[in-house]
Simulated scan of single mutants.
Amino acid sequence: MRSIVIAYEDKYCEELHRFIKRLRNDNGLPGICLESRSVQGTGGFINDVAKLLRTPLKQTKLPPDRLVCLADADRPQNLAPDAPVAPSSDDNDALDRWVFELEKSWWDFLVREAHLHAESTARLRVICLRWNKESLLVASPDALVDYADKHKRRDQLQSLLDACNPRPTMLADADFILRYRKTDSCMDNVFQAIENRNYKKGRDDEDLLRDQISPNEARRAQVLKRCPDLERLLRELI
């Protein structure tokens, strides 16, 4: 059986991993051994990549056929010192070119600094998620509204979303990553409206994925459409 490991930058990645596995099932991809590992921060990639490439998996008793490093794209210099700066223009093509250049810069950095040999290098892939894990949450405003409803704050959150420019409920899927780049700030506003507190990464993100987004096929499909880097990720998980 083919084996793939996804290395996540976040310490808490269980629900994101389950979400990605559900996306694979939604798209009819073949069964594989797909495991997760956390490197606990962007600096952990350079420390762990060689070990992850050579460590046998429990199920197969062999090192993974592929290692996919998945990181947020909002702080590119944390991935590679010479990473290009994101373009500020609302140009999808320019943004696509930038993320490809960022991934190439990051891949080169990992190969060079981790002293990977040719066989390991051939099994290494990197994907940068625009813009961060919070993008997956903001991409599904219906999930946020349902969460607010459970706290009897539906009207307050709906007012917040209606005041956004552009409104996430009305935005075309293809424009989402162009117009919503500071999604961590968005989530602070969401939780201020619902619970009068700031968003807590590692808890709220995992809860929303588990309870509001991952179980709902329509919401999974919407997030996939609005976050094209997930589509690229799925192409590496075959």
Rank of each mutant, 00 (worst) to 15 (best):
W107I: 05
P30H: 10
S88E: 10
D205C: 11
R179K: 14
D90H: 13
P30S: 10
I20C: 02
I177T: 08
V138N: 01
A193E: 02
T183W: 04
P168E: 04
P64S: 12
R112A: 12
Y199P: 04
K11N: 13
A118D: 12
N47V: 15
V49G: 02
E9Q: 03
L161G: 00
A73G: 07
N189E: 11
E217C: 09
G41L: 04
N198S: 13
Q40R: 15
L116F: 05
S135V: 06
A143M: 06
V126Q: 03
L102T: 00
F100E: 06
R97D: 13
A143G: 01
E231D: 11
I20N: 00
V145G: 04
L23F: 09
L171P: 04
I20H: 03
P168C: 09
G28N: 14
E101Y: 11
D108F: 13
F100M: 04
I6D: 02
E9G: 04
G202L: 07
P30F: 09
R203H: 09
E195Q: 10
G44V: 13
N27R: 15
R97Y: 13
L171C: 14
F100S: 00
L52R: 02
R154E: 14
A174C: 03
A114E: 10
E231S: 14
F191Y: 14
N132V: 04
S89Y: 08
P81Y: 05
C164D: 03
A114F: 08
K200Q: 14
L136W: 11
P166N: 07
R197N: 10
I20T: 01
D204T: 03
R226Q: 07
E119T: 15
D188M: 06
I20F: 07
S88T: 10
R226P: 03
D90I: 08
S36W: 11
K58G: 00
T55L: 06
R153T: 07
Q40C: 13
S185E: 11
L34P: 01
T60Q: 06
A172W: 00
D72W: 01
L57F: 06
N78W: 00
D65V: 02
K201V: 10
V49Y: 05
N196A: 15
A193N: 02
D184V: 04
A139T: 07
I213S: 00
R219A: 05
S88K: 15
A71I: 03
D91V: 11
R235H: 10
E113Q: 11
Q40A: 12
L234R: 11
K182V: 07
F45V: 06
R37N: 06
C128I: 02
G31M: 05
K200Y: 09
D90R: 14
P56H: 13
D72G: 09
K51Y: 06
P63F: 06
K225T: 09
G43E: 05
E9N: 04
A50C: 07
A83Y: 07
P76Y: 13
I194G: 01
L79K: 02
Y8C: 02
S159D: 07
